[in-house]
């Protein structure tokens, strides 16, 4: 444990019990970090060793402030904040209600703002800290019928650069991970309405230069690197991890 790449580091991961968040927390723990996995699902989910689960609604500022206040009592600093909490709404803007719009921005963007804002005093104290936000390749190019989601991810990308500029002088690095298609419950729900799921999934794999979609472990590999000291000169960047999908022009079926 002690020779792990994150040995001795303290990390908070929001959305820590989701598809990708679970893989990140497990990997962080294996690399020697002490991890607090925050999730609206709270303690119902089983946690691996080294991971403590805390119930947290990232849209609730009082709750976010209380979490970081209690972390401040338990230890002097926070080395890593991963903002992985997020939801998806599969609608065009015309079908999206104001309530849905406000909800996805509250979780995907405002939640990130709140956790980062209240984590900053603790991150500063670490001397060198890393924040990893979850953007998406959808923040660069549009998937049809995901308008509000695409917009939140574009906001995350801009926020990531802004935070990197503002807090770099304080020793805080801020990056975004921009996944493509990752095999998670969110992706399965995206497939669900499609009818013949198996042939759809095969078609989706075939569009990728790597001929598969990503796994939560693929994402955890990148997040671990960004969180580690090896990435100490990496900041303000949007790291696309999509098996080469977005390197291509749209693939016509010829």
């Amino acid at each position: 444990m002690s020779d792990g790449r994150l040995a001795g580091k303290r990390a908070v991961v929001t959305g820590g019990c989701g598809g990708i968040g679970t893989a990140i927390c497990a990997r962080f723990a294996r690399e020697g970090a002490t991890v607090v996995a925050c999730d609206v699902a709270g303690t119902d989910a089983p946690a691996p060793g080294g991971v403590t689960v805390a119930r947290l609604d990232v849209t609730d500022e009082d709750a976010v402030a209380a979490l970081f206040a209690s972390l401040a009592e338990e230890g002097p600093a926070l080395d890593i904040l991963v903002n992985a909490a997020g939801i998806e709404i599969e609608k065009t803007i015309e079908e999206t209600t104001l309530e849905e719009w406000n909800r996805i921005f509250a979780i995907n963007v405002t939640g990130m703002f709140l956790t980062a804002k209240h984590a900053l005093p603790l991150l500063r104290r670490a001397g060198e800290a890393s924040v990893v936000n979850f953007g998406s390749y959808d923040g660069f190019i549009a998937d049809p019928g995901l308008a509000a989601y695409c917009a939140t991810k574009g906001a995350v990308h801009a926020l990531t650069r802004a935070m990197a500029c503002d807090h770099g002088p304080e020793g805080i690095r801020v990056n975004a991970v921009c996944p493509g298609y990752i095999d998670t419950p969110m992706l399965q729900s995206f497939f669900q309405d499609a009818g013949d799921i198996e042939s759809l999934q095969q078609a989706v794999r075939d569009v990728h230069p790597m001929r598969r979609y990503g796994t939560p472990e693929d994402i955890a590999n990148l997040v671990t690197w960004l969180a580690s000291d090896e990435a100490r000169y990496a900041s303000g960047q949007l790291w696309v991890l999509d098996g080469g999908l977005s390197a291509q022009v749209q693939q016509m079926r010829l």
């Binding site: 298609y181 995206f190 499609a194 759809l200 990728h208 749209q250």
Partner: peptide
Amino acid sequence: GLTAASPLNPGVF
């Protein structure tokens, strides 16, 4: 608008 959309355009499958 071709390259504004994802290369994986699920609507087409």
